[in-house]
């Protein structure tokens, strides 16, 4: 079994985004999703610091310190883009106007509970940023994360062991081994990497998995 790279995971999520959606990408791996939106599919990226129609990184010489993304990285505005203030950015989020939030996660439960804001470190202070607003307010929330923690323990759990960001918000999980849906019937495997079967995936996943009737193998380009 060959697990997906981080770029392949982002590619998988990008492939499933629907034209016309307003999307907020979390800091880190989710930001890579914007690199793989299929050509010709029009998507509008939202940034909680007051941007709709956020573009990619600026070309050398076109950097503008007043045009940054939520991770404080330099960004650009696409034609048709707009600026607004923070409060309005969160009206869009909390008011359910943002179609999709893709966030990283430490853990997701079988019921779609999300834990992604603190690991309860003794030495470093926690920070929540906009994660709780996005988790509670976006129309749908997808989690993008490695299937297992560094010590091999499952990140998809019956119940989260870490403090929650929001309960019952995640509807889909993209990992380096599979794409899974949170459904009323349990955690359903939509896609699985080549060389791994349901039993193998179940071994590294806490809740009972079911195989979606139309499940398929992930065929991702090398990257």
């Amino acid at each position: 079994m060959k697990p997906l790279t981080r770029r392949q995971m982002a590619w998988c999520a990008a492939r499933d985004i629907v034209e016309g959606w307003y999307i907020n990408l979390g800091i880190g791996m989710p930001t890579m999703v914007s690199d793989y939106i299929p050509d010709g599919r029009e998507i509008i990226f939202h940034s909680e610091n007051g941007i709709l129609g956020m573009g990619g990184a600026p070309k050398p010489g076109e950097e503008d310190p007043d045009l940054i993304n939520a991770g404080r990285g330099l960004t650009t505005l696409v034609p048709g883009g707009s600026f607004f203030h923070h409060n309005e950015a969160f009206v869009m989020i909390r008011g359910g106007h943002v179609d999709l939030s893709i966030m990283g996660a430490y853990e997701v439960s079988a019921k779609g509970d999300l834990a992604n804001w603190t690991t309860d470190s003794d030495t470093l202070a926690p920070g929540v940023g906009g994660a709780m607003d996005l988790a509670a307010g976006a129309k749908r929330v997808w989690a993008l994360m490695e299937h297992n923690a560094k010590d091999g323990s499952p990140r998809i759990r019956e119940t989260c062991s870490l403090p929650l960001t929001a309960s019952g918000c995640v509807t889909r999980i993209y990992t380096n081994m599979a794409v899974l849906d949170i459904t009323p019937d349990g955690v359903a495997v939509r896609e699985i990497v080549e060389g791994l079967d349901l039993a193998g995936l179940q071994k590294v996943t806490e809740p009972k998995l079911v195989l979606a009737s139309d499940w398929k193998m992930i065929v991702a380009p090398e990257m």
């Binding site: 989020i93 909390r94 030495t123 920070g127 929540v128 709780m132 607003d133």
Partner: peptide, 18 residues
């Protein structure tokens, strides 16, 4: 923070703004 010389209140970003 390490030296416990600062009180910290974490507020979700949208809630802080609202």
């Amino acid at each position: 923070y390490r030296e416990q010389k600062l009180e910290l209140e974490i507020v979700p970003q949208g809630t802080m703004s609202e």
